[in-house]
Design a protein around this nucleic acid. Structure first.
Lengths: 333, 333
DNA sequence: TGTCATTTTGCAACCGGTTGCAAAATATGT
DNA sequence: ACATATTTTGCAACCGGTTGCAAAATGACA
């Protein structure tokens, strides 16, 4: 068993409170005392039990990191950034995988049992009631990559997916395509819905351009490939806005396999600008999502909420921009 | 603040022990009592504080999930499998990102402060002393994807990287290549070293075949691409065993860009069989690493160690096999 | 050196649970 | 209905810390 505060106190010949105070910053301890205690502690190899102290302080420094995106490579980067960012601030990510969870109940209970200080929901596909459920349990919540103001009471950090849809549409129109397509991700993901809305709203300003749309079954390579193969069989559009980069890459492979080429026969623009998008054998034109900034901001927000749990909920939106690569034909004129 | 056991006891008009026992399975409680308590608990929305109970039971059900591989897409799958597998057994993964950690000290201290019940080190690149450090702190450890018997005292679950190196060499020789190359990952990764050793040892049995070798700086697309571009500039080998699939895909892109083609001009075989390897626009011949089995077995081992902390350390090795796709020329004969 | 303000220290109660033990309640057998 | 075996329950101590409060020690000043 591990060394306890009591043993350190005995060895140092002081009270338990003295030891506790030595390891609590801001507490009043004389230099002499501190030296005695630190000596004894290091002799014994003592390190305080964070969970025991959480009982009285009410803080565990545990943050639930909740996600259901374990198949999109971009989320590996998200996890990397979150874990490091949290660690740097002395917080510990308790990872929760929500894949095929229908309702938030179980996770909420679990995270409450572990008295997490806060929850970060990192997902662009979870319905808003998940984040809401944590909030209702009285835990500070930040929904990263979530739908803007999807739910009052919950802080959201992410992008404006509707605007991204518009931006994609605008880009395709500018390039002079006369028939454009929206090839979305799963239809029940909030991000898909918003991108669709934005795309269509922008296109309605360009009645001369033909528009069609469809949805892939998941944000995955296979789904993108399958859907694009299907589209290419009938009368395809000249260019597509694909739900995200993984879908785009799947679509690219379908184009290649159909003895067509990008951007000559079909144009494609993705969304995310994942690392792979710039690989030379992919070279995907896409809309850049500032992941690093979103994660950093989410963590900052979380940290301030720890001191201010009832902070008025805000939505932080980061602008996106088109990254020009090789899958869309050059600007018209 | 959350509802406590005491409040439930008061509302149900019973002792605190009764409430505690109702929520502890295996404890002796009459049906009548149980009903009373459960009623009160659900009225109040009580759920027991896992950390408080850990204080007396000595178990937190927290498992440290330690890794430094946050750039290799294959690890997203690893995290997915680990988190779900652990959750299914009522265990909670506390994620630790060791990227650019030089020594294990900090993480060991942190994980001890949180009294994790065990630690899974999931990395093919961490030096063995990391896993060892956790073990020395008296915490049950499983090193997944680690070097076989790299360190006594530590359980290892993974593949035989040396054998994989041999297998790759054997495969290339069988295909009739007369000059083969080893293009490894970072030279300080144990997996790289072992694959190298195996590759060379097998090749030494084929003195007529010319062998060369070099190392990329990281297990990443860019590094693989850069290294292959460099190799192609001088007299390249006819086929390469690349350190892993990500490196291979980088190498493929270099081959494409040099107006060469795979497998006609250069053969490539990777290792891992990550999901991307079977994407039609990549179609990489590679050695399959049974990730799912490794993770499952690691978790099983971890679970048994929770009851048997001093279990004699074992090494579990899973066989790999070549997956035939399109980047190596067909069998000779 | 004595008085008073300030800092340091220890006591004891508490955080939210668990558990050994003995008393109370219930079940069993005659 | 009684004696005895078995189960259920509550008491109280404990897990490893923290913290308000008052006493003890130290410092400041005359």
């Amino acid at each position: 068993m591990a060394i306890t505060l009591k043993e350190v106190a005995e060895r140092a010949g002081v009270s338990r409170s003295a030891v506790s105070r030595t390891f609590t910053d801001g507490a009043s301890v004389s230099d002499k005392m501190r030296r005695k205690v630190e000596k004894a502690a290091s002799d014994l190899g003592y390190s305080p039990n964070a969970l025991a102290s959480s009982l009285t302080t009410g803080r565990t420094k545990l943050i639930g990191l909740v996600s259901n995106n374990f198949h999109n490579p971009i989320f590996l980067e998200v996890f990397d950034l979150f874990t490091r960012g949290l660690q740097d601030r002395g917080l510990r990510p308790l990872l929760v995988n929500l894949t095929d969870e229908i309702n938030p109940e179980n996770s909420v209970r679990m995270l409450r049992q572990y008295s997490v200080d806060g929850v970060v929901v990192a997902s662009s596909t979870l319905p808003p009631n998940f984040a809401k459920a944590f909030r209702d349990a009285g835990v500070p919540v930040v929904h990263s990559f979530g739908r803007a103001s999807s739910s009052p009471q919950v802080h959201v950090v992410g992008i404006d997916n509707t605007e991204c849809g518009r931006m994609a549409a605008r880009t395709l129109v500018e390039r002079g395509y006369n028939h454009v397509g929206f090839m979305g991700g799963p239809q029940d993901a909030t991000s898909t819905q918003d991108r669709y809305t934005g795309f269509m709203s922008e296109m309605s300003a360009h009645p001369k351009v033909k528009v069609s749309y469809s949805f892939a079954e998941a944000y995955s390579f296979d789904a993108g490939r399958r859907e694009m193969l299907r589209l290419l069989r009938a009368a395809p559009a000249e260019a597509y806005f694909c739900g995200d980069d993984v879908l785009s890459i799947g679509a690219l492979s379908a184009v290649d396999d159909s003895d067509l080429s990008c951007p000559n026969d079909v144009g494609i623009i993705g969304l995310n600008d994942m690392e792979m998008a710039k690989w030379e054998n992919i070279n995907l034109t896409t809309i850049h999502q500032p992941i690093r900034q979103i994660v950093t901001s989410s963590i900052e927000l979380m940290v301030t909420m720890l001191d201010e749990p009832d902070r008025y909920p805000e939505t932080r939106i980061f602008p996106c921009s088109v990254v020009e690569r090789g899958t869309l034909r050059a600007q018209a004129n």
